[in-house]
Simulated scan of single mutants.
Amino acid sequence: MTRRVLVAVLGALLLSAVAVGYGAFTVTREHTPTAAAARGLSLATGPRILFRSTAADSKGHLAMVANDRPDGPRSVSALTCLRVYAAGGTGACLRQDGALSTFQVAILDQNLTVEKAIPLVGVPNRTRVSADGRMVAWTVFVAGDSYNHGRFSTRAGLIDLENEETLDSLEFLSVTLDGHPYTAADLNFWGITFAADDNHFYATMSTAGHRYLVQGDIAAKTVRTIAQNVECPSLSPDGKRIAFKSAINGDPTKGWHLSVLDLASGTRTPLAETRSVDDQPAWLDPNTIAYAIPSNPTDSDVWTVPANGTGTPHLLIPHAESPAPLN
């Protein structure tokens, strides 16, 4: 879901404040089959790309295309999502909770059957699944935080599907900023991406007008800052690089540009996409970054660009957003 849509949805909702913490969510087991299973759609590893369709005849529906024909025929599921991602045979579909003005993350199995539904206190914005399918993360926009003077805030949470332990918000973790313990009322987190060990993750943290890339440790219940002006990180398949968006001149009102951060050296490589990208990028492979660009207020397309800063942007999937490779 794009920021413009989120603002419209948030303006129509009155979100209630709730107390959250470790394990506070009620996980609903659904085991609800979708029409996708009957049509043979699957999240199994294969040369396909999963995405959210923005085409007029299938808007919001989960869809797939073949890697070698991304602009060709698409398989469309009956399942609708506001944001989607999948890996390791597990899918995460952020969606409206029935006819209610509330939302949930639906956990999908390999056959796109809804296995669990977790309520979300806020409007969905980002989601990620760990490479082995064990961990699922989400980000939502919320309203009503007293420190924020009526503006929108974010909440980021995650669940370990192996033991069903849930972290409702990263705000419950201990924060180290520039090597020192840090607490503040205005902490916000968003855009989680998982490391291969299913314990460490990266995310964006904001406080006092600054945005930081943080590395988190789930077992230790900690996060620490490692870089500034990094938003919506996406860890590369080899775990050595972060693709991200950064505010132009540090000012989000000017838009965002894509870059890749080498974690070992700290070197940042600006990518060849010069348009503003308000998205959490995805690695299609070790050399290619995918992301959505709006084509009009109700439609988007998925584009790609080389991860090394060379080349030019390429239209990958028209009328699409929220791409996830199933390689």
Score class of each variant (00 low, 15 high):
103 F>K: 03
89 G>K: 05
292 A>V: 06
274 T>H: 04
314 H>G: 03
106 A>S: 09
296 N>S: 14
294 P>T: 03
87 A>V: 08
209 G>D: 06
14 L>I: 14
92 A>C: 11
297 P>A: 09
98 G>S: 12
18 V>F: 10
223 V>F: 00
49 I>L: 13
286 P>E: 05
202 Y>M: 03
182 Y>D: 12
289 I>Y: 07
29 R>V: 00
139 T>Y: 13
99 A>M: 15
174 S>I: 07
7 V>A: 13
135 M>L: 15
290 A>S: 05
299 D>R: 02
223 V>P: 01
225 T>K: 04
178 D>E: 13
118 I>L: 01
107 I>M: 09
240 K>P: 00
319 H>D: 14
301 D>H: 06
235 L>V: 00
75 S>M: 11
36 A>P: 02
95 R>I: 01
120 L>H: 00
281 P>E: 04
156 A>M: 01
185 A>L: 15
294 P>K: 00
22 Y>R: 08
141 F>K: 00
180 H>M: 08
69 R>Q: 12
201 F>N: 00
223 V>R: 03
272 A>L: 04
84 V>R: 04
184 A>N: 09
268 R>K: 11
290 A>V: 05
169 S>A: 15
86 A>C: 14
217 D>Q: 14
90 T>W: 04
115 E>H: 01
214 V>L: 07
248 I>W: 02
318 P>L: 06
237 P>S: 07
118 I>E: 00
164 E>M: 12
231 E>T: 14
246 S>T: 13
316 L>S: 01
272 A>M: 02
73 P>Q: 06
245 K>S: 15
103 F>D: 00
265 S>K: 10
314 H>P: 07
322 S>G: 05
201 F>A: 02
168 D>N: 03
152 F>K: 10
93 C>H: 06
224 R>L: 11
154 T>R: 11
1 M>I: 13
238 D>V: 15
114 V>H: 01
93 C>F: 06
197 D>S: 14
192 I>E: 02
28 T>K: 12
89 G>V: 03
157 G>A: 00
179 G>H: 10
179 G>N: 08
230 V>N: 04
62 L>D: 07
32 T>C: 12
238 D>C: 13
270 P>G: 11
271 L>H: 01
273 E>H: 12
84 V>Q: 04
69 R>S: 10
49 I>M: 13
205 M>F: 03
103 F>W: 03
215 Q>D: 11
116 K>G: 01
102 T>G: 07
271 L>E: 00
253 T>Y: 03
98 G>C: 09
100 L>G: 06
146 S>W: 01
5 V>M: 09
35 A>T: 15
90 T>C: 02
12 A>G: 15
170 L>K: 02
122 G>F: 01
199 N>P: 02
130 S>K: 07
182 Y>G: 04
54 T>A: 14
228 Q>Y: 09
195 A>D: 13
21 G>M: 09
36 A>T: 02
279 D>F: 11
180 H>K: 14
78 A>N: 15
270 P>V: 10
